[in-house]
Design a protein around this nucleic acid. Structure first.
Lengths: 154, 154
DNA sequence: AGCGTATCATTTGTATGCGAATGATTTTGC
DNA sequence: GCAAAATCATTCGCATACAAATGATACGCT
């Protein structure tokens, strides 16, 4: 931001500082970036959604956990993670059992099929990330991920 | 990326290049950034959702348009924009009327109440953007928006 | 004119995503 | 120990999202 920007119109094509342009608001662009990523994911990993894969991948790396705790690890609230787990269970990718000492908790684990599925999809998932980031140079990618993480974590 | 990164482990805390770490994937961080933005929006503009406000703001700047065209302008497919418009109509913020010559089209306009609502909320919306971007310096913000836009547009 | 294609709006079905309420259980504070 | 507070899972209601199918209308081309 130069001092001139405070009184004069920004460069053509640049962000305006005074008027409200929907297409320049972070929220709006974030939503569109998300849409593009979802489309790439769906094209490569057709029969699993990003939240479902996130849950499986997290289970793969941390092992059995309670439903709510898994939700925290993948940034989903209790109601949302329940739906995701229900659908994964219906497909036989995860198994549920009561916690041995805490009767409130429901432990979630990968089934053998779930394990296989994750292992088969990991390379695909990396390609989804790659394709999503393809518009950026490696240098830009590093910068972008750093700033995006800052933004996401507040 | 230095040449060393291709064969050795990245710095502690830095992104790993070989293993799959969910928390380092763009899609996952994008979703979390979106969540944070949604929360900020909801805290400031409680009784309108981001898609609803986006539709109103777009109508405000472009005037009357067909339902589907409005959907394109705010990046929502036909089914989604219909639901959004239905709810705005139920609240009296938009009005609908058939297109004069093309009987397939449904023209959407801001009602006087809708106009007032948008005008009253525009400053709030700018603050939502500001608060969302608060973790970044002005310089970082400019870079981030440039890269995010590149990513969103593919 | 007329046929095939494209566009517009709608509906249905599935999957997040979150707020709020509920009941069961555990943990904390005193 | 025990009452209050916190945690876990579940449920309900609402609001995006998108794929796919449908019916109505408009348009292109011959």
């Amino acid at each position: 931001m130069t001092r001139a920007d405070e009184t004069s119109k920004a460069l053509p094509g640049g962000p305006s500082t005074d008027a409200y342009e929907l297409d320049e608001q972070v929220g709006f662009i974030l939503r569109k970036a998300n849409q593009r990523h979802l489309a790439i994911f769906a094209a490569r990993i057709g029969d699993l959604t990003p939240p479902q894969f996130a849950a499986l991948a997290k289970l793969y790396s941390v092992g059995a956990t309670s439903q709510n705790q898994l939700g925290q690890l993948v940034a989903m609230d209790a109601a949302t993670i329940k739906g995701v787990i229900d659908r994964l269970k219906a497909r036989g990718l995860v198994t549920l059992e009561p916690h041995e000492s805490d009767r409130r908790r429901l432990m979630v684990s990968l089934s053998p099929e779930g394990q296989e599925t994750v292992e088969a999809l990991l390379p695909e998932a990396l390609e989804v990330t790659e394709e999503t980031l393809a518009p950026l140079t490696p240098r830009e990618t590093a910068t972008f991920l750093r700033l995006l993480t800052k933004l996401a974590e507040g």
